[in-house]
Design a protein around this nucleic acid. Structure first.
Length: 606
RNA sequence: GCGCCUGUAGCUCAGGGGAUAGAGCAGUGGACUUCUAAUCCACUGGCCGGGGGUUCGAAUCCUCCCAGGCGCACCA
C-alpha cells in the first residue's frame, strides 16, 4: 500500500503542471433566472404581493421560492419574516394573505392558496406552457443562452499538460472542466480565449536531457516517444536516489537551456514537439481546441521584466542568494521568484503570463483551471500581482478541482503505474461499440455512436460531480453505462429523435393551441423542468461549476423517461399527437443544447 | 506544527437557511404483441462525522473536536 501511495504521489506530481485543481473563497451564488421566463412570473406576483406585505417588490421577488412538491403550486412566498413583524403565526399570516387574494388572478398566475406557513401561487398551465414552448421553438439552438457577459473577454487556462509525460487520467479533469467552462461562458455572452499553458519549461527538462544523454536511444524514442520519455523520467528519479549528483547535473542543463545553449535547446525542441503530437491526438478525439498553445516557455522573454518590476516596486528581497517575496503580512509563506543559481520558477512564469494575458487580451476574468493542490501557488500569485499594483489581480481566479485517486490494488500497470487517458477513452468506446452491436445491430453509423457514447461517459463522469471533490478512479464505474450517466441523457435524446422520425415530423412549428393538450402531471413537470434551463446555465457559469448543468440534464432526461412511459406520443388523436410531438421536440432541443455545452455529442440513433 | 478542502443511505454522490433529506449503484419484487428495456414502477435502506452555539427554523451559518485528503523556499 505504501508503494501504491508513493506511486500516486509520483503520478500526481507527474501529471500536474496545471493538472489538478479550485476557486478559493468562491461563493456559489444562487442565480436568479435572469433572462428566463420565471422572471416575468416573479415580477407579476411580487408586484401584487409587495403592497400586501409592506416589502419592496424586489425583496418579495427574492423571497419567492419553488415549492418542493408540484401539488404545492409553482411559486411560494414564505411568511416567516412577516410573522415576527406582525406577531402572528406564519400560518395565520399565510391564510390572511390568501384570503385577500381569493378570487383574484393575474396573467400568469391563476390562484393563490395558503398551505401552512406558505402562500402558494399556481401558474395558469396553459399560459405557462405556451410561453415557454413558444420561446424554445423561437430560439432553437440559442435557447438557454444569454448575453450577461456582454462580450467581455475571459481567458481560460486549462488542460496544460507537462511535456515529456504521457497524457494520464489525471489530466482529464482540467481538460474537460476547462473546456466545458469555455462553452458555458461563451453561451453567457463572453468572448472566451482558451490557453493551453503547456508545462514546457522548468528543471524537469534538465532532468530529461540528462536522462536522455545517459540512457537515451533514438530508435526507441522514435517508436513511442512520449512513453519512452516517461520511462526515462521515471528512471532518472530512481537513479537520482542513489546518485544525487544527477539532480545537480539536471539543474545545470536547465540553466543552459535558459541561456539558450544550442544542444540543450535542440533536445528541448525535440521533446516538446513529440509530446505535442501525442497530445493533439487526444484533443482531436475529444473535440477540444485551444486558441493558443502558449506554454510556459512562451513567456521566457518577459521574465527579466518581471524580476525587474518586483525589484523596482520593492516587493522582492534577497534571501540566501534567492529572490523571494515575503508575504508573511498576508498570512502566506514566502514566494520564490529566482533560485540562487539564477533560474526562474513556475511562479515567475505565471506572473509573466498573467501580465501578458492582461496586456494582450484585456480580460475581465482570467480563469486557471488547475488542481486544488496548487491553491497556495495562485494565492501567492494574486497577492504579488496586487502588490505590484495591478487592479486586475482580483480578476485572476483559480478554479480548483479535486484529485483523481485510485483504490488500492486497482492499478497494477507495470510501468510507472500510470493509467493513460487514451486507454480509458479507447476502452470506453470499445465497450460502447459492443453494447451497440448487441442492442442495435442494424444501426448505420455504429462507430460515431460508439464514440459519442464512450467519450461522453468518461466526460460526464468527471463533470457531473462537484469539481472540488476528489474522484476515485474505478474502471467499473467508468465503464458503467446505466443510471446517472451521459448515456442516459443521450439515450433519451435518441429516443426522441426516433419518435420524431417515425412520425415524419421533421419540421415542426409551434402553435399555441397545442398547450391545451399538455396537461397531465408528467407533461407539466417536463415543461417546468425545461423552463429551468437558462437559469441552470447561468448558475453553472457564475459558480464555474459544470456539474450544475450536468445534473440538470439528468433531471430533464428523467422527466422525459417518465413521460415516455406513461404518455404515448404516437396516438390517434391528431391534436394530442401533435402537441406531444412538439413537446418532445422541445425536450430534444434542451438535451442537445445542454450536452453541447458539456462537449458531449448527442447522436440521433444509438 | 500552520493553512486549505472534504465528511449525507452498504457504495458513489445531489441538496449549501425554510415545508416529510433526494438520486444512481447494489439488493428484493414487478413492467417489453405497443414510440429503442442503455428504460420505467414499487419496496428495502439516514442520530446529514461528533459536541456546543446563532435563528421562529440548521444537512446548510458560527465555533470547537474527530477522521481523511492536499499544501507549506530553491519541483511544477
Amino acid at each position: 500500500m505504501a508503494g501504491l501511495l508513493q506511486k500516486q504521489g509520483d503520478f500526481s506530481d507527474f501529471g500536474n503542471v496545471r493538472c489538478h485543481l479550485t476557486a478559493f473563497g468562491l461563493k456559489y451564488y444562487q442565480i436568479r433566472n435572469e433572462g428566463s421566463n420565471m422572471d416575468q412570473y416573479k415580477e407579476e406576483i411580487s408586484r401584487v404581493l409587495a403592497p400586501l406585505v409592506s416589502l419592496e417588490q424586489s425583496r418579495v421577488a427574492e423571497l419567492l421560492e419553488e415549492p418542493p412538491e408540484p401539488e404545492m403550486g409553482d411559486l411560494a412566498f414564505p411568511c416567516y419574516i412577516l410573522a415576527s413583524r406582525r406577531k402572528q403565526s406564519p400560518v395565520k399570516v399565510a391564510a390572511e394573505l390568501a384570503q385577500s387574494l381569493s378570487g383574484k388572478r393575474g396573467v400568469y398566475w391563476e390562484k393563490a392558496m395558503a398551505q401552512g406557513p406558505y402562500l402558494n401561487f399556481y401558474f395558469d398551465p396553459v399560459v405557462f406552457n405556451q410561453d415557454l414552448l413558444r420561446r424554445i421553438f423561437a430560439e432553437g439552438e440559442d435557447y438557454g443562452k444569454s448575453n450577461r457577459g456582454r462580450g467581455g473577454t475571459v481567458v481560460i487556462d486549462y488542460s496544460s499538460p507537462n511535456i515529456c509525460k504521457p497524457f494520464g487520467i489525471g489530466h482529464i479533469r482540467s481538460t474537460v472542466i476547462g473546456h466545458a467552462l469555455y462553452l458555458i461562458l461563451e453561451a453567457q455572452g463572453y468572448r472566451c480565449i482558451g490557453v493551453n499553458h503547456l508545462g514546457d519549461w522548468g528543471t524537469q527538462f534538465g532532468k530529461m536531457i540528462v536522462a536522455y544523454r545517459r540512457w537515451g536511444d533514438d530508435q526507441q524514442l522514435k517508436e513511442d516517444p512520449v512513453n519512452y520519455l516517461y520511462r526515462l523520467y521515471v528512471r532518472f528519479h530512481r537513479e537520482a536516489e542513489s546518485e544525487p549528483a544527477l539532480e545537480e547535473e539536471a539543474r545545470l542543463w536547465f540553466k543552459r537551456l535558459e541561456e539558450g545553449q544550442p544542444e540543450a535547446v535542440d533536445y528541448w525542441k525535440l521533446f516538446r514537439q513529440l509530446s505535442l503530437e501525442n497530445y493533439e491526438q487526444i484533443y482531436d478525439l475529444l473535440g477540444i481546441k485551444f486558441d493558443y498553445y502558449h506554454g510556459e516557455s512562451h513567456y521566457n522573454d518577459l521574465l527579466d521584466d518581471v524580476i525587474r518590476l518586483v525589484q523596482e516596486k520593492g516587493v522582492a528581497t534577497e534571501s540566501d542568494g534567492a529572490l523571494i517575496v515575503d508575504l508573511e503580512k498576508y498570512g502566506l509563506p514566502p514566494a520564490m521568484l529566482r533560485k540562487k543559481d539564477g533560474a526562474t520558477l513556475y511562479l515567475t512564469r505565471d506572473l509573466a503570463a498573467a501580465q501578458y494575458r492582461y496586456n494582450t487580451f484585456n480580460f475581465v476574468k482570467a480563469l486557471y483551471v488547475v488542481g486544488a493542490e496548487q491553491k497556495l501557488h495562485f494565492q501567492q500569485m494574486v497577492k504579488i500581482l496586487e502588490l505590484l499594483g495591478f487592479p486586475w489581480a482580483r480578476d485572476c481566479i483559480h478554479i480548483p478541482f479535486g484529485l483523481i485517486r485510485f483504490k488500492e490494488g486497482r492499478m497494477s500497470t507495470r510501468e510507472g503505474n500510470m493509467i493513460l487517458l487514451e486507454e480509458v477513452l479507447q476502452r470506453s468506446i470499445r465497450l460502447a461499440r459492443e453494447i451497440i452491436e448487441e442492442k442495435n445491430p442494424g444501426l448505420k453509423d455504429k462507430e460515431s455512436a460508439a464514440r459519442a457514447v464512450g467519450l461522453g461517459a468518461v466526460r460526464f463522469g468527471d463533470l457531473s460531480n462537484d469539481r472540488v471533490k476528489d474522484i476515485e478512479f474505478d474502471w467499473d464505474k467508468v465503464l458503467d453505462f446505466t443510471g446517472e450517466t451521459a448515456v442516459y441523457i443521450q439515450y433519451a435524446h435518441a429516443r426522441i429523435c426516433s419518435i420524431l422520425r417515425r412520425a415524419g415530423a421533421t419540421e415542426l412549428t409551434w402553435h399555441d393551441d397545442a398547450a391545451d393538450f399538455l396537461t397531465c402531471e408528467e407533461e407539466k413537470k417536463m415543461i417546468k423542468t425545461l423552463a429551468a434551463f437558462p437559469g441552470k446555465i447561468a448558475a453553472s457559469a457564475e459558480s464555474y461549476r459544470p456539474s450544475i448543468l450536468a445534473r440538470y440534464l439528468i433531471e430533464v432526461a428523467r422527466d422525459f423517461n417518465r413521460f415516455y412511459h406513461s404518455c404515448p406520443v404516437l396516438v390517434d388523436d391528431p391534436e394530442l399527437r401533435q402537441a406531444r410531438l412538439l413537446l418532445i421536440s422541445a425536450v430534444r432541443q434542451v438535451l442537445k443544447n445542454g450536452l453541447a455545452l458539456l462537449g458531449i455529442v448527442a447522436p440521433e440513433e444509438m
